[in-house]
Design a binder for these strands. Structure first.
Lengths: 229, 229
DNA sequence: TTCCTCCAGATTGTCAACAATTAAGTTGGC
DNA sequence: GCCAACTTAATTGTTGACAATCTGGAGGAA
């Protein structure tokens, strides 16, 4: 009976290349959600039963996440969740500042009319969220705005790096968005970014984006000064 | 005879963490030197005998280099030397532009008097190299200048990314430095960068660095237009 | 006590063999 | 002759076992 016919002879093969490696993605999610705390040791054998994978798979996942800067592996010493110092957090945000500035400038030259209205809509929703003191919602819109700008700019190289930087700071960022008065500060900055992109003014867009993230850095500094980092 | 005394009971342990993995470094060197050409397939078994390592080691090395963007591994399809398109080369250089701009600005705030004279010395040597038409030497000084500025700025996060970007473009960069008239164009740009850092003017330093790399991008574009990329 | 040495448990690093997948060559039918 | 499916070789993915290394603590000498 070698004539057994396969029901699915040729899967359409989704465009994703090396995208979904279950163990890696699950481990990343766990780290980003705080299941494993910064500095915590990640023992391979433990992770194996935790995620139902073999050590080979876990090891590959750890190597990948090390490349992303989320974990740190030292030879013969094992893997730890990377602990990001305050100075590093500043550095990472500075890098994000210049990269997002680049992206904003490029978005200003490539934006379509349709995308321009979408930007405006997000800005409107942000104003409402601040007025209604829905800070969680404002935080979501913040992410959505930055992501839309990236989509408009289509700068693959910058996108990847920005995402890496962002992931390393999820914990800090989260703390930040809950800072009292923060939305009120950043709302006009966001509005200025949207305005510049809609006006197709690359230099203004970059300046506005950099001013915005520079203010994030200042907020981080004040947070550190109070000792809440 | 268990009383055998170790001559080196506690190695000072050099600060390098996961630095030297012979196979990985050798493979990277081979790729950067063009032993393996962009797009070329890297068969694990072949690399094994090439570098005298086991497949396990080679595989780990390939994963590392994939994280650095030098090779591309597709599941079940094997590894290839990453082929960087012209558009990608532009993107990568744009990212380098803003990152080196950030570094230059920071160098301008941190530079010591001693470092300032070292910068000046390099600028002097560059002028001489251009005058003597020693282009290879000029290219070396170019690298040395950028590296010194990074050393002054001590921005670890930006450094790592810049190095990654640079590595991906060695081939393009190399071609570029041989372009006739190129040194004459970039020399005054370099001088302006040094001048701004020595003057402790961060904004001028960033602007000068960005102008310099923007001109690199233009050179890349003209190279492409002629079809020599 | 205090320090060093040594030992045992735990953990990571490496290997060689096996399974799964892909790619190429070959045969057979039209 | 040409397209299709089948077969086979090459290559990658994975596994379990074994070796090397590190960590923490017990034991003994100064």
């Amino acid at each position: 009976m070698p004539a057994q016919r396969k029901a699915v002879p040729r899967q359409p093969e989704p465009p994703v290349a090396t995208g979904d490696i279950p163990a890696r993605d699950a481990l990343r999610k766990a780290i980003l959600e705080g299941v494993y705390l910064p500095g915590e040791r990640l023992v391979e054998a433990t992770l194996c039963e935790q995620f139902g994978a073999t050590r080979f798979i876990i090891r590959a996942a750890l190597a990948d996440l090390a490349a992303e800067g989320l974990v740190e592996v030292r030879r013969n010493k094992g893997a730890h969740v990377r602990k990001i110092s305050f100075d590093e957090a500043i550095e990472i945000t500075e890098v994000r500042m210049v990269l997002e500035g680049l992206v904003a400038a490029r978005a200003a030259t490539l934006v379509t009319d349709e995308q321009a209205s979408e930007l405006d809509e997000i800005a409107l929703l942000m104003r409402r969220a601040v007025a209604a003191e829905e800070f969680r919602r404002y935080s979501d819109l913040n992410q959505r705005l930055h992501r839309l700008i990236q989509t408009i700019a289509r700068h693959h190289t910058a996108d990847r790096l920005i995402e890496t930087m962002r992931a390393q700071l999820v914990r800090h960022q989260y703390t930040l968005s809950l800072l009292p008065g923060r939305p009120a500060t950043s709302l006009p900055q966001h509005e200025r970014i949207v305005e510049a992109i809609r006006a197709r003014d690359p230099e203004a867009a970059e300046a506005a984006m950099r001013a915005h993230i520079a203010s994030v850095i200042e907020a981080l500094r004040s947070l550190e000064a109070v000792g809440l980092s």
